[in-house]
């Protein structure tokens, strides 16, 4: 078999070629175009002229950029904490040995996650829309919902709450991923530990705080960071529901990149923003490996 040294490389070539063609080339293009002043109209004429770092200087004075960064921070932190927290609770609930119909529950919980963002977006619009929405209609006749303060009509039109509404919808859609990840973690805790603790007279609360939570910490940590990495780039449901409005109030960073490129047609500036988005992702990734390294060193 030795003489066929080229076989392993040959098997990788198709995958590599596709990845380079669809990921690497565009990335290179973004680097170059980020240094140009270029619009959608320039694209077909091969136009655009080099302006150096001008786009990047512009970013640091761009009010909308800071606005999108702020929205991203709100959106990501609420979504991530919510998803991981509820994911943990539900995974824990599904591990309880007295609970029946586990795969039924788990199957239904996965629905929001496997439905397309367009269907999810529309379904939530139908619930929240000021005139036709189910929730405002129901709230107008239900004293109970009025008591809870849910009788508002401006879920999607009030600039000061719309980003929180999007975060809650993202928790709703993203919880199943955390649930699955943490179920995998819970599976790895041997039952014998719990039995031993029970023999020693530990109550349910003690078993939770002394066994489950310490042993789950690495899984929760990895889950937190993975969800953070994913959520920074999530904008499809927001695009469907509000396109970032009203008045940029729900425009997260990734959506700002998209809108700058395709709504405003500013390809050069949007490319520079793409690179910044990539750097934000890189930062989170580095943080991820630093935390993992730190934990390993502490455990060693």
């Amino acid at each position: 078999m030795k003489k066929r040294k080229w076989i392993p490389i040959l098997l990788i070539v198709p995958a590599l070629a596709l990845l380079i063609f669809v990921m690497m080339f565009p990335l290179g293009w973004a680097f170059v175009t980020g240094l140009k002043s270029m619009t959608l109209l320039d694209l077909m004429t091969g136009g655009g002229r080099f302006t150096g770092l001008k786009n990047y200087f512009k970013i640091f004075r761009d009010r909308l950029f800071y606005n999108s960064l702020r929205n991203s921070l709100i959106f990501v932190s609420i979504s991530v904490i919510g998803q991981v927290f509820f994911g943990f609770l539900i995974a824990l609930a599904l591990k309880n040995k007295f609970v029946r119909f586990k795969s039924f529950f788990r199957g239904i919980f996965l629905l929001p996650w496997i439905a397309s963002s367009v269907i999810v977006g529309y379904s939530w619009i139908y619930i929240l829309d000021a005139n036709l929405g189910f929730l405002p209609t129901l709230a107008s006749v239900s004293p109970f919902l009025q008591m809870l303060g849910l009788n508002r009509k401006d879920w999607l039109t009030n600039p000061s709450i719309v980003i929180y509404v999007m975060s809650v919808i993202n928790i709703w859609k993203g919880m199943p991923f955390s649930m699955l990840m943490q179920s995998a973690g819970l599976q790895s805790i041997p039952d014998t530990l719990y039995e031993a603790a029970r023999v020693d007279g530990a109550g349910a609360w003690q078993r939770l705080t002394k066994i489950t939570i310490p042993l789950m910490t690495p899984f929760i940590l990895i889950n937190l960071i993975m969800t953070t990495m994913i959520t920074f780039n999530v904008y499809d449901v927001i695009l469907v529901m509000t396109s970032g409005g009203p008045n940029h109030a729900s425009e997260v960073l990734s959506l700002y990149v998209y809108n700058t490129g395709f709504t405003m047609g500013e390809l050069g500036y949007a490319s520079a923003l793409s690179i910044i988005l990539l750097l934000v992702n890189l930062l989170v990734t580095i943080l991820y490996f630093m935390i993992l390294r730190y934990r390993e060193r502490r455990l060693a």
């Binding site: 175009t33 780039n233 990149v257 690179i275």
Partner: peptide, 11 residues
């Protein structure tokens, strides 16, 4: 790790 959001403009 490259997010789709940062290559959609060049793609």
């Amino acid at each position: 790790m490259i997010p789709a959001a940062s290559v959609i403009i060049p793609i």
